[in-house]
Design a protein around this nucleic acid. Structure first.
Lengths: 134, 134
DNA sequence: GCTTGACCTGGAGTGCACTCCAGGTCATAC
DNA sequence: GTATGACCTGGAGTGCACTCCAGGTCAAGC
């Protein structure tokens, strides 16, 4: 079972243009072609694309995804380095989640303040100091 | 007490160039100037900058930060809309955290697999199927 | 009074990750 | 046999958020 580029796009959530772009820059190996010269993606190609989207979603830069992709082509001897890349990246993702969480706390606080202002000044008057500050 | 642009940059974590850029595009009101024409930031200016960095860190696009900034200038009557912006944004940040968390699970799984491969094939042999897939 | 360093302006340049386009090929449906 | 629609290529264009630059001003220290 193989898939057209449109199906691969559909399955991975990437656009057709992005699939071709990823191929150009060496993020994905050129897939097989059918008799008419069209790309045919295998199940494995799709798994890789899906995994790539996870890396992308978590903000891994393309140059690092590319390094990982190239290592993959060189087989088991590169497993250590690949694992290291994922470990480092996992750390960054965890940090990022913590950072977002702390900003979320600020947002919560701010929203609560708006609610308080509404309660104390029901539809009237000037903003209080807290409003001036942001 | 006022602060130079370098101090404002230091305090907010933004670069001096970014501070001037934010002023140009209307994200921050032009601060006061000293006798020599240099920017002097107030405590309130700094608070606003710090809050802006929270919005930026959480991925709010500049055009929305600008809308919020403009509303702020129009006083209490815009508090409702501002609160609405923050509420929507908070939802997006929560979604983003959940998305990162789910990608993190994939990373964990992947890393565990590398560990298993190392355990089963201590320094030898070909990659197993799981390796091929990513 | 001159050097130094922080600051100023308007505008150009950068890096990233796509995204779009023109002009062409090919297989299927009618 | 032709119209349609999916696909192809190389290359140009886009949007975002800065970042850098040249050329100039100004205040303080020596």
């Amino acid at each position: 079972m193989t898939y057209s580029i449109a199906q691969a796009a559909d399955h991975s959530g990437l656009s057709i243009d992005t699939l071709r772009y990823y191929e150009r820059i060496g993020l994905v190996e050129p897939p097989a072609r059918d008799s008419g010269g069209r790309r045919t993606y295998s199940e494995e190609d799709l798994s890789w694309l899906v995994f790539l989207t996870k890396l992308r979603t978590t903000g891994m830069p393309i140059r690092l995804m590319r390094e990982y992709a190239q290592l993959r082509l060189h087989g088991a001897v590169t497993a250590g380095r690949r694992k290291q890349i994922l470990l480092e990246h996992r750390g960054e993702v965890r940090d990022r989640i913590a950072e977002l969480q702390s900003c979320l706390d600020v947002l919560d606080w701010k929203i609560t303040n708006y609610a308080e202002v509404e309660r104390k000044l029901p539809g009237v008057a000037e903003p209080v100091h807290i409003e001036e500050a942001s």
